[in-house]
Design a protein around this nucleic acid. Structure first.
Lengths: 141, 141
DNA sequence: CTGTGTGCAAAGGGTTTGCAAGTAC
DNA sequence: GTACTTGCAAACCCTTTGCACACAG
């Protein structure tokens, strides 16, 4: 299968040029069901790319709505694609996430909608983060 | 009012010795309704204490259940006391938190219980983090 | 060709570790 | 006196910024 065209289109639809590192990064995201950090990507990228380039690509992807922040455990931010196939418009990332205490993988629970709560008028809520943590199946074994 | 004795007892009840910096840190937590980071504490402590000492005290307090992590926005972890008056036993921190996008203050919404969700058997959930963000009353003005 | 993207060097902020000196009880 | 705490120095990790060069369209 040829993933090249979809990736080029995905990038162009969000106003970004197609470059080798961006394409490879998006392929990695599409091929993984867990969220990836800048370090994860650097370890997986075939060519030796600069950390800075990866950070800037991630920021661009997030700004344009190609990726969302799945978790940030203080030791790094992890990003993920919604549905491994993002729509052209900005997506909303209103699902829960799960972080494993053992392997530290972050999973998108795309089928788990975030429940609402009632809060005081003192706060105007714009975003909600719902993150579960515990042990994932792979580590339970 | 004399807060000295309660603080000494709080520390001893959790197996920690009373030292000036620990006492002052706990007083700061009791006197604030928002979560505090290591940097916040360093700025508020009267004597010049070492950053490391503050980090270690925070870790001890968290391990012993005196404080809980209220938020970690990648630019630092903020801690808070439950109910500004923690029970002797380990508390559970099962309430929502609110982080203001403007002033970056973290508030404990102690009256807001975290709603449960159903997740796949693939995950054993141990903890839940529910963090709202938006604008707080002070910044709305 | 022109704006966008990349690489390198350097710096910044938060946090941790090792070790020796100090202190609570 | 003894174990726990502190302070200092140094290191670690993630991330950002500035600037010159390279490349996509």
């Amino acid at each position: 299968m040829d993933n090249t065209k979809p990736i080029r289109e995905l990038l162009h639809a969000h106003g970004l040029k197609k470059t080798p590192i961006r394409a490879e990064m998006l392929e990695l995201f599409m091929g993984h069901d867990v969220a990836l950090s800048a370090s994860d990507l650097l370890a997986k990228l075939t060519a030796n790319h600069d950390r800075v380039t990866v950070y800037r690509a991630l920021n661009s992807f997030e700004e344009r709505g190609i990726l969302h922040r799945a978790s940030e455990d203080g030791q790094g931010v992890k990003y993920a694609m919604c549905g491994h196939q993002c729509p052209d418009e900005q997506h909303t990332d209103q699902h829960a996430h799960f972080v494993c205490d053992e392997c530290h993988q972050t999973y998108c629970l795309e089928e788990v909608a975030i429940p609402d709560v009632e809060v005081s008028d003192a706060f105007s809520v714009n975003r909600v983060n719902y993150t579960l943590s515990g042990i994932c199946k792979a580590c339970k074994a």
